[in-house]
Amino acid sequence: MRGQVSRRTTLGFIGPAVFGLAIVGIAPLLYAVWTSLHFFNLTKLARVEFIGLENYWTVLTDGVFWQAMGRTFFLLATALPLQIALGLGIALLLHQPGLTLVKTLARLSLVLPMATTYAVVGLLGQVMFNQKFGVVNQLLGGANINWIGDPTNAFAMIIFWDVWQWTPFVALVLLAGLTMVPGEVEEAARLETNSWWTILRHVQLPFLLPGLTAVLILRTADTLKLFDMVFTLTRGGPGAATEFISLMIQRVGFRGFDQGLASAQAVILLIITIILARIYIRVFYKEV
């Protein structure tokens, strides 16, 4: 029988990886759960004590957590539609026939933003959006906009960089969907109508849906993860204007030293992520 091997063989192949992941991936999570059930402050390590679910109660009733969550989903709700609209436009553009060389160039350029170190994106943001010496204000006709110090502008700046970095990803995912449309079907449709919108809705959309679903789930997960770029660009400020969920947990745990509370927040975030991952699996890995 194909695929039937002894237990020992299977274990020999898969054991080291599972053991490795268990040590670095699972044990720390268990420790985080343990910490979350304790009063655990880095500056008061002498009085670590078991307090049950009190940290969780604090997280769920305290406005700070929900505000950070709200901010995170507000970012998602503003950046993602932009990424999808622009990404779809770019994908349709690249899908047109002709101009092969320029399109190859464009496709290679699209790869650059999404590979860029997040921290470098944040540093670039500091340089380009600086009020006095920044090129962005210069390109806006000598505007004197305070991007980093103003809550609304800082948020807009984060949206800009998120869109800059991840629109290419959306574009390439959707382009992959467009190339799945059988050539004959698309040609037949083009003989029927000249309207790109009709073709998009009735011919191409069904092939784009899996990609759109993937983008929706992965962008949600990535926005919950978002840390490096924002940390280097605004550190969550000014005030808490750009303090998204991962930044908030980092502040509570490492700048506020309350590891117990931060761990409770992290565990709640983990549960949300697990739900997202389950949905992703349901949708995309029916065969496994």
């Binding site: 695929g3 039937q4 091997v5 237990r7 063989t9 299977t10 192949f13 898969i14 599972v18 992941l21 991936g25 720390p28 999570l29 420790y31 985080a32 910490t35 992965l218 997960a221 919950l224 993860k225 840390f227 969920i245 991962s246 947990i249 980092q250 745990g253 590891q259 931060a262 761990s263 992290a266 565990v267 975030l269 983990l270 992520t273 697990i274 997202l276 991952a277 389950r278 992703y280 699996i281 890995y285 496994v288």
Partner: peptide
């Protein structure tokens, strides 16, 4: 190549790891 129990769980674990925020691990680490 092999058939064994727990394959699905392993898969699930990988996808979760792709999505979980590093701050969740950074605290206990």
């Amino acid at each position: 190549r092999f058939e064994f129990r727990g394959k699905k769980d392993l898969w699930f674990w990988f996808i979760t790891n792709r999505m979980v925020s590093p701050i969740v691990l950074a605290l206990p680490f």
